[in-house]
Design a binder for these strands. Structure first.
Lengths: 206, 206, 206, 206
DNA sequence: CATGAATGAGACTTCATTCAT
DNA sequence: TATGAATGAAGTCTCATTCAT
């Protein structure tokens, strides 16, 4: 009985979170009212506040749920026996596939948290930075192995890599870039190609 | 007399714009009130509405003023007789120097417009895209010349290049990255190095 | 079995009432939520509504339980063969000892009911007035006996007497007056001394 | 012009304060909405917030305006060459006349602040205590002069005196006591009579 | 008896914008 | 041009109460 209730409760909570994703993606976090979330979820206004302390906490929860999965994936990859290039490819794959699988959720995370560094992002700056650091770690070890040049600092390389992916996702999100399975696969390859081999056919050392 | 008055008026307008930069940078666009701008400028509340139709128009103006200068610079560069790599370097230089010269203004433009794609950025999506297209044009012609490989689409290359720069600026803005003249110069070189030559010492063609 | 259950039920009810005293005393009636009472009592949210029709009824019950005891005590005293001064002393004693014995309950009754004449007090105005009238009756008969002067109307004398006690209790409650066994005994004497003999060494008849 | 505007502004502020007195007196502070005040004053909702930071600040202002006048009056009286009894009479007069002159304002101050010790009163406890202390000072000096007995502590005497007056005013406010010019004058005399000469015809020293 | 999820009206406060002077 | 008082719509959050289990 209690177990049953807990399950039902968990389902309502999930119902609200899923509704929030749709509403945030459609209207934007600041442009939507809490009642929009409740309406979308088909529950009463106050129930949102039964499960979450505030509107912010709803977005918080969505972000952390997903971001932590990504951090775990990166940490896991890092431990595997792969060449650095493949590690970066796997990270790019995970992010692109996340978008393919749930574009609305990724839109919310990128637009409302990751890129909204002014307001909400500040709260999660540390969490976001953690991702950069994990990527920088991969680069650093690749440099130690001699697989990567040491002309670029690891931290900086991580920024460039993540920045490129985020920009591509932004392109899809704001529909300034064509979307589709072909494009998704191409993007994974190209971002790694660009960062690992560069655009130039030949460039003298600076 | 009329001319003199016009000049005074123009100065008041500028006073308000400059104050807005400081206030937006400090508090964020959504977190500040119109009265904060007026207070910072030392003018009356309503005067902001004498020179601007709305709070949005103030940010609008700040963004367009600067962004158009950048577009002009890129267009101008594109016409010059430089190798592609130097064109990219010049663009990176312009953006980094813009930040060095007026970090508050660049913070506002990046945080509140360029990255705030959810709300304000939408308005200027076309203007922002224009920059990508100019950069893509440079890449495209470099590929035609044989200076750049054609494994990466121009549009995509532009996103990666601009994404890397924006991410670095974000690092400075949110103070997750050290700032200073050395870092500024290093950043210019490294972003171009990364995008043109890649990180890998050697990578087989995919 | 039924009796046993009734007893258990009665105990739960008492549990809730006692918890309510602590919560009301700590947070104030309006500042606390029904769930705070339930939490303090260690029972489920809805159980409060099983025993009481509303949050108001909880306070209602606490007030009436205690106030009726006081009215009975006064009525009882009035029938005894005591000089008026000793009757007043006994009333003052009862009230002060009530506070000594259960300061939280008295705090709630005075702060949230007796003095909260704006909202809750209105409900019990008649009950509160009843106390004044009983005291006024004592004074009236004392005047008929010649023990008290008839320069002050009985009703008025009752207000002054009760007002003085309430003010002293307020002093203890809000900690603007030192508390302790000595002070409690002193207060009983002084309030009667003041009201019966006055402060002045000598005052001409007005 | 500026002076004119300031005057107009001050008048609107006063308009809101006066409306607030009527609304608070009629509905009670907690039971009225800010819009009720605005409606009563015939101004827009937001104007209340133009002149006051919050609903609380409106009540705050009303209380302090009046209470400070009273404190000044008491301080002033204290410096005059009057017998203690006349000083107490003057204080009682001032309070009773305040009620006669503006019963709604006094109702608000007593019901919502002075007696609402639970919530709002706490804020002004110090201010309220100041009044007790001034009265206690009068008693103390009267005892030093030999005009008052020293069987009752000054602080306690002040509480009894003020408590008696407050209780009488409460009686008028809640209409459990008849009101009228005769009653007002009588009250002034009787409260002083009670406190200075006592109710008893003869009482042995305790 | 007991539970606590679900409901939804209500209130404060904010602030962009307008407008009379 | 300049001022800042005035407007009022909008949105978050609270919490007493109900109800299904």
């Amino acid at each position: 009985m209690a177990a049953r209730n807990e399950k039902v409760a968990a389902e309502k909570r999930r119902l609200i979170l899923d509704a929030a994703v749709r509403v945030f993606a459609r209207q934007g976090f600041n442009q939507c009212r809490v009642s929009d979330i409740a309406d979308e979820a088909g529950v009463a206004y106050g129930l949102v506040y039964h499960y979450f302390r505030s509107k912010d906490e709803v977005l918080d929860t969505l972000f952390l749920e997903r971001w932590n999965v990504m951090l775990d994936v990166i940490r896991d990859l890092d431990g595997q026996d792969l060449v650095p290039r493949d590690k970066l490819y796997a990270i790019a794959s995970f992010i692109v596939d996340s978008y393919r699988h749930d574009p609305e959720l990724m839109k919310v995370i990128i637009v409302e948290v990751t890129r909204a560094a002014n307001s909400f992002g500040q709260t999660h700056l540390q969490k976001i930075t953690e991702a950069y650091e994990l990527i920088a770690g991969i680069v650093e070890r690749a440099q130690a192995d001699g697989a990567f040049k040491d002309t670029v600092t690891p931290r900086f390389a991580a920024l460039a890599f993540y920045g490129a992916i985020e920009q591509v996702l932004s392109g899809w999100i704001f529909e300034t870039l064509p979307r589709g399975d072909t494009e998704f696969e191409q993007a994974k390859r190209l971002v790694v190609e660009t960062v690992c081999r560069g655009l130039a056919t030949y460039t003298p050392a600076p």
